[in-house]
Nucleic acid binder design. Structure first.
Lengths: 233, 233
DNA sequence: AAATGCATTGTTGTGTACAACAACACGCGC
DNA sequence: GCGCGTGTTGTTGTACACAACAATGCATTT
């Protein structure tokens, strides 16, 4: 393949200011999803050469993507060894969860965004998806649903730094559920998450965004406790 | 210069696992300081080629450093134009300050670290420096002192994600004071900061770390209000 | 004189070859 | 049989040459 003559890259005309940036974000989200969905489990060593070949680029632009993922704490590159998917040890997990709880509450307090029809539709769709998921639990679908619920919640606040910080911490810890999937009660977790979405939807319909933050915080708190209990036995 | 034969690079034997990493961190902190101390003011276009030449490396390792700074929001690279130091517009500044206030309070609540003699000495030295600064105000010394006070405060909490998040937001906004230096009353600001350090030291000596967070939050809140007043007239 | 097209220049983005490094396996000595 | 040194292999790190791109200045045209 010749340089830059990517087949599907510049297809959409919305290259706001650079086709390279678009490709970067595509690679970034692709790899982040693979990490969060445990296609690349913690400790997995992925090869720059192999990834570059797969995506039809050279190592150079790929390394920029890996660099960002490393900056987010999802990867760790060490010379002579490889690029390793990070693992989250239990005490670091606890610290992140403590902070995530506080930030979840802030989502409803800092720059709340008035719920519009779009947001309501979004959460109603999530509620329906949650009910289906609770009826027929599936590990991967659960993980994806968890991500989608989080991303929907991020639209509640206008505070961009808060959203970015919450995102970073979320993607750092969301994998733990898929990792513990043999031990956890997937059906119960799906049911709990589905009910959380229902509660969130109720609060949004009323327009009480502070309540949204409190509900979310409570569920993060409880889910961490359940997680610890799962792991302990 | 041949590859890797840097004169001062591998001088210290504490290369925990890679001399490259050490060099990376040195470049990173150097450039971050230059940005935060306004050696590179917002809007400034810095050349990869020139920087690589200055540091005696090739563009490749330098680009990794620039990539991290871009991930932290301090730089913005655009093809064909250059690598530009970001500017903070007033509304984004407000959002960051709101979040910083909340995080400051959390510093005293999440994983507080018992003050030891080292920390007390650190803050007592800062108190002395603050008094000297208040007597003979200097813009650059004020900015550096502001950074050092912040870094000392980061040692109060054991929560690493909270520290990293606070750092990111701090370095994103600390430049605003040097930017406004013709308009602000530098002597007054130095006096206020020195007194804040005194208050913080008092709280630390008592061992009330929650108070530390509250004091810090209050000062962040007030300093933002003063900043807005400075800018408005 | 003003506007427009175009060449020039300088920048970041990309591809590629090689160096530095660490892990592994093999063979040698004990 | 066991320990150790060493070559081999695969990885990330680095340097460099070139492509893609945007801005600028200049000549040309209207």
């Amino acid at each position: 393949m010749t340089q830059g003559a990517s087949g599907d890259g510049p297809g959409r005309g919305e290259t706001y200011s650079g086709a390279a940036r678009e490709r970067f974000e595509r690679l970034y989200e692709t790899l982040r999803n693979r990490i969060c969905l445990l296609d690349y489990p913690p400790g997995h060593r992925l090869s720059e050469e192999a990834l570059a070949t797969e995506f039809g680029v050279s190592r150079t632009p790929l390394r920029r993507v890996l660099g960002w993922l490393e900056a987010q704490g999802l990867l760790r590159s060490v010379q002579g060894v490889g690029t390793i998917v990070t693992d989250v040890e239990i005490d670091a997990l606890s610290q992140i969860y403590q902070l995530r709880m506080e930030l979840a509450e802030l989502i409803g307090r800092l720059g709340p965004r008035e719920p519009d029809e779009t947001m309501l539709t979004l959460f109603r769709n999530l509620r329906d998806r949650g009910q289906q998921l609770a009826e027929s639990p599936d590990a991967r679908a659960f993980a994806q649903f968890n991500i989608d619920v989080f991303q929907a919640l991020m639209q509640v606040s206008n505070n961009k730094p808060l959203r970015e910080t919450s995102e970073r911490l979320f993607y750092l810890t969301s994998r733990i559920w898929l990792q513990s999937v043999p031990q956890i009660d997937l059906g119960q977790e799906a049911t709990i998450l589905a009910r959380e979405v229902e509660e969130l939807l109720t609060a949004i319909e009323i327009g009480d965004l502070a309540a949204v933050g409190l509900i979310r915080r409570a569920h993060i708190s409880m889910s961490f406790i359940r997680l610890i209990r799962y792991r302990d036995g």
